[in-house]
Design a protein around this nucleic acid. Sequence first.
DNA 1: ATCGGTATCGATAACGTTTTCGAATCGCTC
DNA 2: GAGCGATTCGAAAACGTTATCGATACCGAT
Lengths: 326, 326
Amino acid sequence: MSDVARTAGVSVATVSKVVNGRYGVAQATVERVQQVIHELGYEASLGAQSLRSHRTNVLGILVAEFEPFSTELLKGASREVAGSGYQLLAYSSGDGEGAAIGWERRSLARLSGTLIDGAVIVTPTVVETKHGFHVVAVDPHTGPSGLPTVDSDNFAGAVLATNYLLSLGHRRIGHISGRADLESARLREAGFRKAMADAGVPVDERLVRVGGFRVESAAGTAAELLALPDRPTAIFAGNDLSAISTMDVARGMGLTVPDDLSVIGFDNVPESALVDPPLTTIRQPIQRMGAEALRLLIDLIGGVEGNTHIRLPTELVIRSSCRPHR
Amino acid sequence: MSDVARTAGVSVATVSKVVNGRYGVAQATVERVQQVIHELGYEASLGAQSLRSHRTNVLGILVAEFEPFSTELLKGASREVAGSGYQLLAYSSGDGEGAAIGWERRSLARLSGTLIDGAVIVTPTVVETKHGFHVVAVDPHTGPSGLPTVDSDNFAGAVLATNYLLSLGHRRIGHISGRADLESARLREAGFRKAMADAGVPVDERLVRVGGFRVESAAGTAAELLALPDRPTAIFAGNDLSAISTMDVARGMGLTVPDDLSVIGFDNVPESALVDPPLTTIRQPIQRMGAEALRLLIDLIGGVEGNTHIRLPTELVIRSSCRPHR
DNA sequence: ATCGGTATCGATAACGTTTTCGAATCGCTC
DNA sequence: GAGCGATTCGAAAACGTTATCGATACCGAT
């Protein structure tokens, strides 16, 4: 900026005013400065700008990793942000194992107040936030979180999945549940139990185990389940990643899906159609969730009052990973 | 930070040293300060930090939008960054239409020097960059770019695609080409022409038109192609998005794919398996490209010498959107 | 007791912006 | 031609860090 100022023969203060379109600079000066800015290709430093003004017109999406669910969400958010005047910045902890609980709080602290004007947090472990900084949670933490939230009807979806397996004649149905601290995981397990109860089928507690929504941990859980003397004939996995992982493990043990084992997932990430066999699953409108979250965030920042909990519907998507029992 | 300093009874300078593990602080003080940091949940402001030290351990990926290709790339990059000590920040212009040529240069100027230590630019229009700031280009601009680059064998892939259509007996083959400024688009068209020439099939110039790699523009081009009195029996689309768009247009005109029209894409984004009918396409290892790009970037920053152009192989993926002619 | 060396710490200047506010100039009016 | 408001500009402080470097305290040895 001082380069621009020197070349244009004005002070940095004036350049700043021109850049931000503030009142109080002569038309001739404005044009001269803009000319120089263009020639030098000057662009304001985001860091310095936000440090000083606490306003950047950049919104953040915080994700633990860029796995399929988060990236789908990103696509939806990206669509929504276009034309809103905001730019989108996706930030990943990069911690890999996600083991580091509290990464959202840390990342949020690093970015808020500087850099971004608000954030969407995906599957957060936090429930509270600094005052004055806007966040919306997608697929929130269990328990009463004060955060504005976007999620899908996890309970109904789980009932759908379980009923489908029941309708195929399965009775020994296993469930690989998700991250224990997520409301979605809790509700999916609850839906599973409700559907089983309604059908009068007792659930064998050895068949429901935590898989954590992640490839590696789900693989371990699937292996335990399938090594059982009286193994399940069908598995309702907490999400597609777990389901895909389960199919891999089954194949590794010499079982074929769906002949020896039916598997149903949850999410309908694009990858679920790519695997062999294509995965039967419960669709959540992930992209739409991303779009809604971003819209909610923009409304919040703009001071627009409105519904602060958006819940979207789920539906059954039948592909080829399930078949009738026996 | 001054809060921490006050509470711990030291100066901000000392807190900074503790945070960054610099030498010259008594062990007892270190522990006391760390304790306070933990209690207060202090986290350094990324903006201020980078403003001052020009080093953030954050790498950027710049994309025009989060469409399927970019998000696949992100997944790969995310995998690679885990455990590297860096964090990943994806930045989208949010301009939507991508019409604003030069967004990479602008975004780069905003982020470089502050905020990020290096960047991966996806399908860039820029060819040069500030000295001392490291970038690697994925799927670069046409022409001699000085940038370290990761791409796939677009030419060979296009030959594969065209030969496949030829082997099915198609002779009137259309091509919807991509963004004219991208090397990949140019090579795909060149591969198409080479394969046609080798097979002794003349290409009807009215059948090869620019689609721009984007849904809307490709739809317009597809409509033109299919409205032709002697319309093509097969179309090689420049990328999957264009191919999917073409199938939509065809359906809208009462044609069924693949009975009335064969369509083949390029990329193998996850979405290509989700559409109806599932898309036959050329696979580029997109996630691997993202991983390689990030590795190259990290090497560059670390001063590691090595190959600065990485080219990955392509292969044919046969699904259901093509069938023999007549 | 004095001294040299080492450990420990803090004051302070930057980094690149934005904002406030006072100074300077200009064009009018009387 | 003096006075006055409006216009135009720049000096300087502030944002939250980090790096430098000087100041102080402490230690053992003479």
